[in-house]
Protein backbone atom coordinates (compact mmCIF):
# COMPACT_ATOMS: atom_id res chain seq x y z
CA UNK A 1 0.00 0.00 0.00
CA UNK A 2 1.46 3.31 -1.01
CA UNK A 3 1.43 6.32 1.28
CA UNK A 4 -1.41 8.72 0.59
CA UNK A 5 -0.73 12.15 -0.84
CA UNK A 6 -1.70 14.45 2.02
CA UNK A 7 -0.94 17.63 0.08
CA UNK A 8 -3.40 16.65 -2.61
CA UNK A 9 -6.01 15.74 0.01
CA UNK A 10 -5.59 18.97 1.94
CA UNK A 11 -6.26 20.81 -1.32
CA UNK A 12 -9.38 18.72 -1.96
CA UNK A 13 -10.54 19.39 1.59
CA UNK A 14 -9.59 23.08 1.52
CA UNK A 15 -7.48 22.92 4.68
CA UNK A 16 -4.06 24.55 4.75
CA UNK A 17 -1.84 22.45 7.00
CA UNK A 18 1.39 23.67 8.53
CA UNK A 19 4.50 21.49 8.14
CA UNK A 20 4.38 20.00 11.62
CA UNK A 21 0.73 19.04 11.42
CA UNK A 22 1.16 17.73 7.89
CA UNK A 23 3.81 15.32 9.12
CA UNK A 24 1.70 14.11 12.03
CA UNK A 25 -1.46 13.73 9.93
CA UNK A 26 0.45 11.88 7.18
CA UNK A 27 1.36 9.24 9.77
CA UNK A 28 -2.19 9.11 11.15
CA UNK A 29 -3.78 8.85 7.73
CA UNK A 30 -1.48 6.03 6.65
CA UNK A 31 -2.41 4.16 9.84
CA UNK A 32 -6.14 4.70 9.30
CA UNK A 33 -6.03 3.59 5.66
CA UNK A 34 -4.07 0.49 6.65
CA UNK A 35 -6.65 -0.26 9.34
CA UNK A 36 -9.67 0.07 7.02
CA UNK A 37 -8.10 -2.36 4.50
CA UNK A 38 -9.91 -4.97 6.60
CA UNK A 39 -13.06 -4.37 4.57
CA UNK A 40 -11.45 -6.18 1.64
CA UNK A 41 -11.72 -9.46 3.54
CA UNK A 42 -15.51 -9.40 3.03
CA UNK A 43 -17.01 -10.90 -0.10
CA UNK A 44 -19.80 -8.56 -1.17
CA UNK A 45 -20.15 -9.68 -4.77
CA UNK A 46 -23.68 -9.04 -6.03
CA UNK A 47 -24.76 -7.07 -2.98
CA UNK A 48 -26.45 -3.70 -3.45
CA UNK A 49 -25.15 -0.49 -1.88
CA UNK A 50 -26.98 0.91 1.15
CA UNK A 51 -26.72 4.68 1.13
CA UNK A 52 -29.53 5.25 3.57
CA UNK A 53 -31.05 3.08 6.33
CA UNK A 54 -34.74 3.30 5.44
CA UNK A 55 -35.05 4.95 2.08
CA UNK A 56 -37.88 3.26 0.22
CA UNK A 57 -38.74 5.98 -2.25
CA UNK A 58 -37.75 9.53 -3.04
CA UNK A 59 -39.59 12.00 -0.89
CA UNK A 60 -41.49 14.69 -2.70
CA UNK A 61 -43.20 17.86 -1.58
CA UNK A 62 -45.46 20.38 -3.29
CA UNK A 63 -43.53 22.91 -5.34
CA UNK A 64 -44.64 25.83 -3.19
CA UNK A 65 -42.61 28.55 -1.53
CA UNK A 66 -42.54 27.91 2.20
CA UNK A 67 -41.39 29.79 5.26
CA UNK A 68 -37.76 30.90 5.11
CA UNK A 69 -35.37 33.25 6.88
CA UNK A 70 -35.20 36.86 5.72
CA UNK A 71 -32.04 38.22 4.14
CA UNK A 72 -31.45 40.57 7.06
CA UNK A 73 -31.62 37.74 9.59
CA UNK A 74 -29.25 35.58 7.55
CA UNK A 75 -26.69 38.38 7.29
CA UNK A 76 -26.73 39.00 11.05
CA UNK A 77 -24.11 36.31 11.59
CA UNK A 78 -21.48 38.05 9.49
CA UNK A 79 -19.77 41.38 9.80
CA UNK A 80 -18.40 41.46 6.27
CA UNK A 81 -21.54 42.00 4.26
CA UNK A 82 -22.34 44.85 1.90
CA UNK A 83 -25.57 45.91 0.21
CA UNK A 84 -27.28 42.72 1.34
CA UNK A 85 -24.51 40.41 0.08
CA UNK A 86 -21.70 38.49 1.76
CA UNK A 87 -18.32 39.87 0.78
CA UNK A 88 -15.32 37.64 0.01
CA UNK A 89 -11.82 38.03 -1.42
CA UNK A 90 -11.18 37.88 -5.14
CA UNK A 91 -12.48 34.68 -6.72
CA UNK A 92 -10.82 35.01 -10.11
CA UNK A 93 -7.10 35.47 -10.00
CA UNK A 94 -3.86 34.49 -11.62
CA UNK A 95 -1.94 31.91 -9.54
CA UNK A 96 1.36 33.35 -10.74
CA UNK A 97 0.73 36.82 -9.42
Amino acid sequence: MKSIDIRHLSKLANIELDKKEEKKLQKDLDAIIKHIQKIHEVDTKGLPETIHPNLTSLMLRNDKVGKSLSRDVVLLNKENSKDGYFTVERLIYDDNQ
Binding site: I6, L9, A13, I15, E16, L17, L25, I33, E89, L91
Partner: peptide
Protein backbone atom coordinates in the same frame (compact mmCIF):
# COMPACT_ATOMS: atom_id res chain seq x y z
CA UNK B 1 -8.46 36.96 5.60
CA UNK B 2 -6.28 35.73 2.77
CA UNK B 3 -4.84 36.82 -0.55
CA UNK B 4 -7.80 35.34 -2.42
CA UNK B 5 -11.07 33.47 -1.81
CA UNK B 6 -9.51 30.02 -1.72
CA UNK B 7 -6.72 31.17 0.60
CA UNK B 8 -9.14 32.63 3.14
CA UNK B 9 -11.16 29.41 3.25
CA UNK B 10 -8.07 27.25 3.67
CA UNK B 11 -6.70 29.44 6.47
CA UNK B 12 -10.07 29.61 8.24
CA UNK B 13 -10.50 25.83 8.14
CA UNK B 14 -6.96 25.16 9.34
CA UNK B 15 -7.38 27.36 12.39
CA UNK B 16 -11.04 26.46 13.02
CA UNK B 17 -10.87 22.64 13.25
CA UNK B 18 -9.05 20.46 15.79
CA UNK B 19 -6.98 17.44 14.68
CA UNK B 20 -9.66 14.75 14.98
CA UNK B 21 -12.01 16.63 12.67
CA UNK B 22 -9.21 17.35 10.19
CA UNK B 23 -8.24 13.66 10.16
CA UNK B 24 -11.80 12.59 9.41
CA UNK B 25 -12.29 15.23 6.70
CA UNK B 26 -9.01 14.20 5.04
CA UNK B 27 -9.76 10.46 5.17
CA UNK B 28 -13.30 11.20 3.97
CA UNK B 29 -11.92 13.20 1.07
CA UNK B 30 -9.62 10.28 0.26
Amino acid sequence: SGVNFSDEIRKTRNDGFLSEVKRRILVGSF
